[in-house]
């Protein structure tokens, strides 16, 4: 069995910056980490690897230094890594990223299961997973919080939706996007780190994929960031103190008065 996990290198949120002139994320500032939500996808893949003797390949699209993210997940136990990288791919949006990843996945070994994180903490669209499934022409389950594989590619799973949990059964091939509840990501082990340092990372670019340039990178991205602006985050906060005078009671009375002036609606007892 072959499992593919998608991994993205993202800036640590503390250092996230936008270039206010071009409206794109500045990716080389600060520390780059593996998208925290991808670690859950990696962990599920590794647990399935242990149970079903699967082979796990991690794939990432990004600049050359995204190789570091791939080595990091290899140190957790991922077997192989593929870096999809080319100047022509820079500026891709979710659509063109999924399109390119699908082409790259089609050049590697047949897969049974693809696992993606719910979304990346930088772009934050959560679209690449479902778009990748569409580009590969396979079905997908999103927001998966439980997944169990039986023999011959039958599985049971559950999805976390707004008002509860859907229990499902199906057959591979399938693409999953997983939420945090799926598993607790393991830490890299020393042995893994040593292996990851030496392991080859396969690189794929335009030379190998030969994609229609009208469909990749900035040119191929259907969406354009028109402008960025700072949201009005400050609100005029009326402050009350529960530590002075009549304390909590006075503050609460003032709050109740204030709430009467807002449109809140009923529903209480």
């Amino acid at each position: 069995m072959h499992i593919i996990v998608t991994v993205k290198q993202v800036p640590e949120t503390r250092t996230l910056r936008m270039d206010e002139a071009t409206g794109t994320l500045v990716r080389d500032s600060g520390t780059a980490i593996v998208n925290p939500l991808d670690l859950y996808a990696v962990e599920l893949a590794l647990q399935l690897k242990e149970l079903h003797n699967a082979h796990v390949t991690a794939i990432s699209m990004g600049p050359p230094h995204a190789e570091k993210a791939l080595r990091e997940v290899m140190s957790m136990g991922v077997d192989d890594a593929v870096l999809v990288s080319d100047r022509a791919y820079a500026g891709s949006d979710a659509w063109s990223t999924a399109w390119i990843l699908a082409a790259a996945i089609n050049t590697v070994k047949d897969f049974d299961l693809i696992i993606c994180g719910e979304r990346a903490t930088d772009g934050d669209t959560g679209q690449v997973g479902p778009e990748l499934a569409a580009a590969l022409n396979i079905n997908a389950l999103t927001y998966v919080n439980h997944f169990e594989l039986a023999s011959a590619g039958d599985f049971t799973a559950s999805r976390l939706v707004e008002d509860g949990e859907e229990q499902l059964a199906g057959k591979l091939p399938m693409l999953l996007t997983v939420v945090k509840e799926i598993a607790v990501p393991r830490l890299p082990v020393l042995e893994g780190k040593i292996r990851a340092r030496r392991a080859p990372v396969k690189t794929l670019g335009q030379n190998e994929l030969k994609l229609d340039e009208r469909l990749v990178g900035l040119q191929g991205a259907p969406t354009r960031v028109d402008k960025i602006f700072r949201p009005q985050i400050m609100r005029d906060c009326i402050m009350a103190s529960a530590t002075q005078g009549q304390g909590a009671l006075a503050a609460v009375k003032q709050l109740n008065e204030f709430l009467l002036t807002r449109r809140i609606g009923g529903g209480g007892v």
Binding site: I233, M234, R235, D236, C237, I238, M239, A240, S241, A242, T243, G247, A248, L249, A251, V252, K253, L255, N256, F258, L259, R262, G268
Partner: peptide, 24 residues
Amino acid sequence: IFSIADFGITGSLFDVIPALIGEI
């Protein structure tokens, strides 16, 4: 949190919540 609040109370939730419930 106060910078994006419309109404803020400085104080302990362990004092404020019982007072809220009391007023309800």
